[in-house]
């Protein structure tokens, strides 16, 4: 046990994460286009992998649309499969 390491009895309470909302429902977007990369990049992490729903806050229906669009973009070399993205 390092001397200066302070052990708290209860975990420190992080600040409350802001309420997540499904941007598709809120802004009424119906179709996820696989061609506009900037929008799709919001749903990718640094390695170019898809963000899970708990992080992207999408509802199931739109998360699937996003994942289809990203896979199409990857197929057509618009998005890399794996990279250290310049995000």
């Amino acid at each position: 046990m390092a001397k200066n390491e302070i052990k708290y009895l209860t975990a420190i309470k992080q600040e409350k994460p802001k309420k997540k909302f499904c941007r598709f429902k809120k802004y009424g977007i119906k179709y996820v286009d696989y061609k506009d990369i900037e929008f799709l990049k919001k749903f990718l992490n640094e390695q170019g992998k898809l963000l899970p729903r708990r992080l992207s806050g999408n509802s199931l229906k739109y998360q699937r649309k996003v994942s289809d669009a990203v896979k199409k973009a990857r197929q057509m070399a618009l998005l890399p499969y794996v990279t250290d993205l310049m995000k």
Partner: peptide
């Protein structure tokens, strides 16, 4: 090199039209 044919549903057609 590579091609992809996608079928467009009504939302997609409307999206492309608006874009």
């Amino acid at each position: 090199l590579r091609h992809m044919i996608t079928r467009l549903d009504k939302n997609a057609v409307e999206y492309n039209y608006r874009k």
